[in-house]
Structures are given as structure tokens and as C-alpha cells.
Design a protein around this nucleic acid. Structure first.
Lengths: 140, 140
DNA sequence: TATTATATAAAAATTATTATCAGTAAGGTG
DNA sequence: CACCTTACTGATAATAATTTTTATATAATA
């Protein structure tokens, strides 16, 4: 909370209840909700907030590097309050999106740079598969 | 060519000039065009073909695993006639999308499976950076 | 040939996202 | 605290990629 307010101020962004609510909601979930999902989740506590505000807030937070946008291949974006690049795992059965500690893939960027001659700035890594839960329920 | 006709038949898909044209166009380019780009590229040779047909054909080819859909983070999809999963490099300066031989990353999927308990079926890996060309032109 | 299934083109519909704009609130300054 | 500037909000309209629909055409099959 206080951190967010601080960081917003540093970027000349105003601290508003809507921004706090959206950032807090994103920080407290392990899901990776879309704009629509966030909007609906805040409907009860912030009934007057419009969908446009959700979009604009997400855009502002994204530009301020306070959240990141995920492009899982669906028809809409998802958002993640963890801003350092880390791979995501998507369950093709239940559509859940979970974080993966990137420590396991630390050496990849280096390898790619060596082999491609690109200067790599960022990466987006998605793995698609069946999560432990869905594996189990399929077996029964 | 003949191969495609064969493969379409095997999947109970009809062989049509439009499908052949789109697949051929995709096979002969190292770019990774979008539906719109494909549509425009075929405008002269296939003036009657509609954009809806392009979309449906791409969808059919995708479902038949004859092409793959790329989600680079733009507002539309790109397509690739190489169907085995391989990482893509996107130049943030000139927006070029290039293929990367996946040999270099062969061991990753295994590592991820071990650490996540998912059964991994597929992966989408994108690296964003500056390509050799753009690096050079920036220096001068 | 008659029948059936699938493909196409054109247009309309859908849907995520963005733009517009009038009204409002935040945060600074005196 | 009152004022002022600027950024933000909310409602709605606009945009654009994609999907669906509908009518027609084509091919496969009996």
C-alpha cells in the first residue's frame, strides 16, 4: 500500500482509491485475472468504478512497471503484480495460470544471446500442459 | 504442395485453392505474417478471397497442426508454417520476428516438468531485444 | 442424377480495448 | 483553509480483430 502510493507519486501519478484497490486486488491473488475479472471482483466493494477506469489503471500501473501484462493466447490480457519476468504455466484443462520461479531458467537468456546475436531485453515464456489437479481428476 | 493436399485429406478437410494458396504463402516466407498481411499478399493472385476465409483457413490449418499461431503481444496473431515449437526472437526496434532453432533449449521442458509437476504439452517462448541490424544502425 | 456435406463470400454481430469528454478529486501553493 | 492546476473518473461512443450468419457454390457419395 504505502509502497504503491510512494511509487505512484514518484511517477507523477495520483494516488486514488481505484488504483489502490486494483493494485491491492492484484497483489493478493495468485490467479492472473483479466480486466473484466478485476472489474467484477471489485464490483461489490467499488460499485461505482467503471470498466474504463480498470483499463486505464492497469495501463498506468503497467507503464509505471508496477504490474505486468500477460498474453497467454486467449482473447484478452491477464495481469500479474509480480513484475520481474518469470515463466508462466497454463493448464490447458482448467485454464489456470500459475507462476513459475524463474530461477530454474536463469541460464536461458544467456544462451539465447550467444546463439542469436540479439541483445535480449526481456522474455515471455509460457508452458502449456496439464496441472497436477487435472491430471488426478482425469485418472479417476 | 502435394504434401499439404495429402495432409488435408487425412484430416477430412477439403483441398481448396484458397487453402493451398495460404499454406503455400506461409511456407515460402520467413516473415511471420498476420491474417491481414496474408490477405493483402494474396489480393492480387486471389482477388475474390475474403478476409473471413483467411481467418477460417488459418483456423483449420491450425487445428490440423499444419501451422502454428504466434502471440507476440501485438493486437493480432501471427502465423508460422513451422509447426514444431521453437522460440521466437522479436526485435523491439524493427518489429521483425525471427525463428530460433530450438536445439539450444532442448532441456528446458524437462526441467520445467520436474519442478512444476505439470505434464507439459507445449511451450511458447518469446525473447524481446535488439537484432544485429538495429544494433549496428544505432551505433552509427 | 439426387443427396448430402462442406467451403466460400459478404455482411452483420460480437467483444476486448481505446478514445472522448464533461464533471470530479488530488495535491500543491499562497 | 481556499484556490488552482492538472490528472483522474465514469459513462458512453468508437475501433478493430475476430466470429457468426446466411445464402450460395462446390465437391463427395450413393
Amino acid at each position: 500500500m504505502k509502497e504503491l502510493a510512494q511509487q505512484l507519486k514518484e511517477k507523477n501519478l495520483k494516488v486514488t482509491p481505484q488504483r489502490l484497490a486494483i493494485f491491492q486486488m492484484l497483489s493478493n491473488t495468485v490467479e492472473h485475472p483479466s480486466a473484466e475479472t478485476i472489474y467484477k471482483a471489485l464490483e461489490t466493494t467499488h460499485p461505482t468504478m467503471s470498466l474504463a477506469t480498470v483499463y486505464k489503471t492497469l495501463d498506468a500501473l503497467k507503464k509505471a512497471s508496477l504490474i505486468q501484462e500477460l498474453n497467454v493466447g486467449e482473447d484478452c490480457f491477464r495481469y500479474d503484480a509480480r513484475t520481474h519476468s518469470h515463466p508462466h504455466l497454463i493448464c490447458v484443462s482448467c485454464c489456470k495460470v500459475v507462476d513459475m520461479d524463474s530461477i530454474y531458467l536463469n541460464d536461458i537468456r544467456e544462451r539465447v544471446e550467444k546463439n542469436s546475436d540479439f541483445d535480449i531485453l526481456d522474455e515471455k515464456i509460457y508452458f502449456y500442459g496439464v496441472c497436477p489437479n487435472c491430471k488426478e481428476s482425469k485418472e479417476h
